[in-house]
Nucleic acid binder design. Structure first.
Lengths: 235, 235
DNA sequence: CACCTTATGACAACGCCGTTGACGCACTGG
DNA sequence: CCAGTGCGTCAACGGCGTTGTCATAAGGTG
């Protein structure tokens, strides 16, 4: 191979593919996101992406070193979109809540990219700006520095951890997911009170609860605990 | 296919493979865990597992419907190992705390497997016993059913999510991990108070805090919020 | 012990996947 | 308008999960 993966701006000759589309890094990333959104996470393969672009799959290797490189580009685009659409209100609980829920939701809209991205420290502009933003919210609310940093850490890692967890579930093939749902509905709901009294006593509530993400509830508990700490500090 | 996947106990004829090993569900799961531990999560393929067992890959389909089914068995074995070493004290906060920390620690001892299995609902024996245990702790503490189920969900998902997040970091190749950390520190050290005042004001605390897992702090905040709810319910 | 049934391991094949090297067309700089 | 080369295309490789078929040994039955 010619080992030539070049930044999009330095590209010299844009030759249309056999089906007439003109490739670009941006178009490829957008198409990848569209594929994920339309046909599920499993639809994102190099071959299918090539087909969707009307190009030979191997053409993509002129733009990205490998699949991982492509997914990172997709992830970076995601981070940008998320940050771009957030607005601060000035009330610390409302701001943390909306920021957390927005990150969680945006990542779940593109689970494949989220799973790969969540655990990586990018050190890029967007990430550093988010650190600054969240720390500002907490210190502005009156948390002492050590407390603010600790809560920042919990908030960020909890949000990313849940985003990755919930995204992983969405990444599973459809059969596995419906299987899990049925596992709760059928197997757990039918456990006898003699062997599993706790489950048997709460079965309907369990089935309803396990069908959704625990992140909103976890976030609320975290915010409540933080507010209690804040009152304690101020007293 | 004969569509015959039979529980391990009901197996009638144990024929040794060409290389002499006698297969069993247990042996397959153990070998899978060993493969993951020795060569990373990516090493777990049906073909390699077959080779490691000295059997034809297709022989595994007599024991598990497909790769997903096998993965669920591996996940359940992990849960079982963790539960086997835990003891209840009778005080709900202490019990949840020790259980959470133990799960988190045990999963990080097998990071490769944790990443692969954290998100799966297995519906198998060990998992069902863990649900029963945790629900028992919460309802025994006096939480009403709906509240107990909600807190159970938050507790479990938060623990697994952090376990997977922290395990993923351990999974990264050593070089990229140290590289990321160094880049991160250098970038944050360079941030001036003019552009990033919040980070600049807390830099030393930040560096110290980000070096460890946020799970213990997150767990404490969750327990504090739960106790507040409990007091509210009782009043 | 001999026989029959059948569970179960082996084999070969299918259709995916990511990735790469060789090739040659068409675009761009001169 | 020509030359050089950037980049899309083609073909192929090796690996993957999975399945249909076959053969063989285990184990009940007499």
């Amino acid at each position: 191979m010619s080992e030539r993966v070049v930044a999009d701006g330095e590209r010299r000759r844009r030759r249309p593919t056999k089906r007439g589309t003109v490739l670009s890094e941006e178009l490829i990333v957008e198409t990848a996101l569209r594929l994920i959104g339309e046909h599920g996470a499993a639809a994102l393969t190099v071959r299918r992406l090539g087909t969707a672009l009307g190009a030979d799959p191997s053409a993509l290797y002129r733009y990205f070193h490998d699949t991982d490189d492509l997914l990172l580009a997709v992830a970076d685009e995601l981070i940008g979109r998320t940050l771009r659409s957030w607005r601060a209100t000035g009330e610390w609980r409302a701001d943390l809540r909306s920021l957390g829920l927005r990150i969680h939701a945006d990542y779940q809209a593109h689970p494949q990219a989220a799973v790969l991205t969540c655990t990586r420290v990018t050190g890029r502009v967007h990430e550093m700006r988010s650190v600054e933003t969240i720390l500002g919210i907490l210190r502005g609310a009156g948390f002492p520095d050590a407390e603010a940093v600790r809560i920042y850490h919990v908030f960020v890692d909890q949000t990313l951890a849940f985003a990755a967890l919930d995204a992983t579930v969405l990444t599973l093939p459809r059969e596995s997911r419906t299987l899990e749902e049925r596992t709760w509905r059928e197997r757990y709901a039918r456990l006898g009170p003699d062997t599993h009294p706790q489950v048997a006593a709460t079965a309907p509530i369990l089935v309803a609860e396990m069908g959704r993400s625990a992140y909103p509830a976890a976030l609320e508990m975290m915010l409540a605990a933080a507010e209690a700490r804040l009152r304690h500090v101020r007293a």
